[in-house]
Computed example of a mutant assay.
Amino acid sequence: MLDIADLRREYIKGGLHREELPVEPIALFERWLKQACEAQLSDPTAMSVATVDASGQPFQRLVLLKHFDQQGFVFYTNLGSRKAQQIAGNAKVSLLFPWHTLERQVHVTGVAEPLSTLEVVKYFHSRPKDSQIAAWVSRQSSRISARGLLEAKFMEMKQKFANGEVPLPSFWGGYRVRFDSVEFWQGGAHRLHDRFLYTRLGEGKDAWHIDRLAP
């Protein structure tokens, strides 16, 4: 059995101080995401999306953030997927951006709301054509017997749409996570990490309370 109990390292890349914090969280998130991109991290927009099923069982998976602003964090998915079915039953979700190389994490809580058809169509047709075709092929989260079935279906659909535009599948869409809390975690020496939690002061308001949390 692999012994991992003693695997550890010090976090020495720097701290996060209250005087550095903007009054609202998106400004700091944008700064950190820009720095993650500049550091050439693999998939800097990858985020874990956590949902809960009807029995209370949590699930997590990595998806790519495709847009963010004061209104929320946007991602796209198959609307028949497990995550979409769970969101339909409980729209409260959690997001986590794991920027380990920079010794940072950002944790978001909020409510996932379906995007408008106009938003989905606009993004869908901005994707590479093969990605558009792949959206038609996979019934996400369903059980399949072999990868070859997916590949055969992909070639079939690629031939079907070879000379024209790929239409938006009715089962493909996206969500905007309207956030009510954002936590910024910066690793610190001796495990004395810096954690600051932004909490929205009332539904629909743009005012935030900031707390420092013990590591």
Rank of each mutant, 00 (worst) to 15 (best):
A91D: 14
Q186K: 15
D206P: 01
A189Y: 04
K205F: 07
V52R: 04
D53A: 06
L28M: 13
F75H: 00
T77Y: 09
A146H: 13
A39G: 03
Q70Y: 00
W32P: 11
N163Y: 05
T117E: 09
F154G: 10
V74W: 01
S48Q: 13
K92N: 13
R147W: 12
E30H: 08
S42W: 09
G14E: 06
F154K: 11
S170T: 12
W172F: 05
E38C: 03
F184C: 12
L21F: 02
D53C: 05
G202S: 03
V23Y: 02
S55Y: 09
Y175K: 08
N90S: 05
L21S: 04
I4C: 11
K153N: 14
V182Y: 09
F68W: 09
Q86W: 00
H125E: 09
S142C: 05
H107C: 14
A152C: 00
G14P: 01
P114T: 04
H209E: 11
F97E: 03
G80N: 15
L16C: 02
P167M: 07
S116I: 01
Q57W: 09
L7Q: 09
A84Q: 03
W185A: 11
M1K: 07
D211N: 06
A207P: 00
A46S: 15
E103W: 15
A189D: 06
T51H: 10
A88N: 09
Q71E: 11
K34R: 15
F68Y: 14
V121G: 00
P22C: 04
R18C: 01
E24Q: 13
F97A: 05
F124A: 09
W32G: 12
S141D: 04
E165S: 11
S131K: 11
F124W: 14
A162S: 14
G15M: 03
H100R: 10
K92E: 10
A162W: 05
P128N: 08
V121I: 06
G110M: 02
S55A: 15
H125C: 00
V23E: 11
A91F: 01
R143M: 13
E156P: 04
E183P: 07
L201F: 01
P44E: 03
M157Y: 11
D194F: 06
G72N: 10
G56V: 10
Q85T: 01
E38A: 15
S138I: 14
A5Q: 11
G80E: 15
E119N: 12
S116D: 06
A152E: 12
A5F: 02
L102V: 00
D43W: 10
L62Q: 07
T77E: 07
G56M: 12
E20A: 14
M155G: 07
V166W: 06
I87F: 10
W32K: 07
P25V: 14
Y175Q: 04
G89T: 06
E19C: 03
L62C: 12
S170L: 08
R195E: 06
T117G: 02
H190P: 00
D53I: 03
R139M: 03
L28I: 08
L21T: 05
S81A: 14
S116L: 07
Y11H: 14
S81I: 07
V137I: 14
S142K: 12
I26N: 02
P58C: 00
F154T: 07
E151V: 13
T45N: 14
W32F: 08
Q70C: 02
S116H: 02
L149E: 12
F29R: 02
W208A: 04
